[in-house]
């Protein structure tokens, strides 16, 4: 294995967390991570030595997920494998315990645009800096902050009132 492969393996737990936050489903999360890794391996010549491997992988994960959201066929095409069942078994208990919180957060996130969801999750869950988020989403840092601010206010409002606002925040 080379350095990139080792780096990708080390990133797997974080990529899976990001993918789970995006999909809220462990099987779909693993399918997303698998597709992300496959794409990354196929285009590894595009990754520049010395730059952040994690940012590059988050970007691929985000774009893969956005692609899947746009194409309804995307998700069902990926086959299930036995390993994923294992993940939601005994080891999945901690996730199950948080199901109520997860459900509420998931509904709140669905009020946001897909791009906003990805942004909020990469910053809040993955600790990606605004600068990296700007690179990942290909917009200026000021735009990132405006999007984040709007999305976080909307999500907070949703979680506080327990009800969706009538329009989606853009």
């Amino acid at each position: 294995m080379d350095e990139v492969q080792k780096g990708m393996i080390a990133l797997l737990p974080r990529l899976r967390r990001f993918a789970f936050a995006l999909t809220r489903d462990m099987d779909q999360a693993d399918d997303l991570v698998q597709e992300t890794c496959a794409r990354a391996l196929a285009r590894r010549d595009q990754w520049q030595t010395g730059t952040r491997l994690d940012s590059w992988m988050y970007k691929i994960a985000q774009n893969t997920w956005l692609d899947q959201r746009r194409s309804p066929r995307g998700r069902s095409e990926v086959p299930m494998t036995p390993e994923t069942a294992e993940v939601t078994g005994a080891d999945g208990r901690r996730i199950t315990e948080d199901r109520a919180l997860l459900a509420a957060v998931g509904r709140g996130l669905e009020e946001l645009s897909p791009e906003q969801q990805a942004l909020v999750l990469m910053v809040c869950v993955e600790g990606v800096s605004y600068k990296e988020a700007a690179d990942i989403q290909g917009v200026p840092i000021g735009t990132i902050m405006s999007r984040l601010s709007a999305a976080r206010k909307a999500l907070h409002r949703y979680l506080e009132t327990g009800a969706a606002r009538n329009e989606k925040v853009r």
Partner: peptide, 18 residues
């Protein structure tokens, strides 16, 4: 809240296929 909701998923066993 977001950190709390998804923290546990980083500790799940990584499937062999990945």
């Amino acid at each position: 809240i977001l950190e709390e909701a998804f923290a546990a998923s980083a500790h799940e066993r990584v499937p062999d296929r990945l």
